[in-house]
Nucleic acid binder design. Structure first.
Lengths: 216, 216
DNA sequence: ACCACGATGTTGTCAAGAGCAACTTCGCTC
DNA sequence: GAGCGAAGTTGCTCTTGACAACATCGTGGT
């Protein structure tokens, strides 16, 4: 008989439908609210209304779920960075500031997730995780290329320059989530760091203009 | 009956003597070898040869041990930074490079401990942890002050400048422990970052010498 | 239609760890 | 030398992760 059991029309069917997505979504929320440490597969199963053994079909162990969480985190981060860059228009510096702000916004909203993303790499040799990471980093590389093209940044391997910028921004988030700086200091530090990066990576007068015309 | 039981002269006495230190030492080694995640109080107790309930007398719960570990980590980090600075002599740039190298050496040798140090701050409102952190950061501040005094760095709040430098170095370690850069890239990135910082924080010609004598 | 099979979910079990409490042993002081 | 508190032990409960055997569903082949 039929299509539905007698109790409630929306009684859970035997199969959840997309348990994997549900687990990831619930896990991301739990991580945001209570940290990675307290994340329990059984608790997630309970919350979703599924048995404690069910998650195993989708994630062989706890680490596998964390890896998947990290991967989706990198995808979302990449998307947010790109969106911020797009919204910021075509000019270099506003784009740089928008990307940095978006990164820091992500880190502020999801500190535990970002930690997880940076921690998960250790064990996981997953290609997909690498790809997701690479995708997020690409936004920075493109920005560097633009900066070099318009002469705001000294020429050179864009990846090297990108890493310097990346380190700085990631370091700021580390200090923030570690509680070593207050939210007020955050804005100040971000501004300082970007200004420092721009000055430090600007073409030198001599490289830009071999004759040293600054003293014309 | 008396002084010793019959078995072995060096049979463990009922009281360990300094279980707290032993726990911290064993924990630090375990964290270095297998990460924070796998650290188990009971395993430590077993390794030291003490019952599973004993650690509780010194650390009310697992987090308390982690906090203590973080604190001692900051103390050691501070000591190593200071030692490196002292060894480097009196000149500014060698000191800067030595301090950065020492920080990164620490991060390379004890990645999990550094993560722990930066993660433990969340919960712990311990004053002692703050103090230990502050002590490590002080080395940087003094360095900045020196740089400003000799005119290699632009004047300004040394803490602000110090945070920029700190962020960058900490960011590098984050990329390293995340596996996003290889050890070869590490040296390159460190060099780039320091050079970038120095250029970015150098006094401008105009602020340094109001009359712009560079073209004299 | 029907059946077999694989994917998904459930239940039961085991080992291990954290946290807690009652008890024991020791060192130290009065 | 009695007792008191610090340090250590033992035994318990609860939770979790991992695993295996079983149940249920839907889908493709015939």
């Amino acid at each position: 008989m039929a299509i539905e059991p007698a109790h409630q029309p929306t009684e859970r069917p035997y199969h959840h439908g997309n348990l994997r997505s549900a687990l990831l979504a619930a896990a991301e929320r739990r991580v945001r609210e209570r940290g990675v440490q307290d994340l329990s597969l059984r608790e997630l199963a309970r919350e979703i209304g599924v048995s404690h053994g069910a998650p195993r079909r989708h994630f062989p162990d706890r680490q596998a779920l964390l890896d998947a969480l990290a991967e989706s985190g990198f995808e979302r981060l990449g998307a947010e960075l790109r969106a911020a860059a797009d919204r910021a228009g075509d000019e270099f510096q506003p784009r740089l500031e928008a990307i940095a702000a978006a990164y820091i916004r992500f880190a502020t909203a999801d500190p535990a997730l970002l930690d997880l993303m940076f921690a998960s790499k250790h064990r996981a040799t997953e290609q997909s995780l690498d790809d997701a990471m690479e995708g997020a980093f690409l936004v920075l590389i493109e920005l560097i290329l633009q900066g070099q093209a318009i002469g705001r940044l000294a020429p050179g391997d864009p990846e090297r320059v990108g890493l310097v910028l990346f380190s700085t921004i990631q370091g700021i988030t580390a200090l923030l989530t570690a509680g070593m700086i207050t939210p007020e200091q955050l804005d100040e530090l971000t501004t300082d760091a970007i200004a420092n990066f721009l000055r430090g990576s600007a073409p030198t007068s001599s490289s830009e203009l071999p004759e040293g015309p600054g003293c014309g």
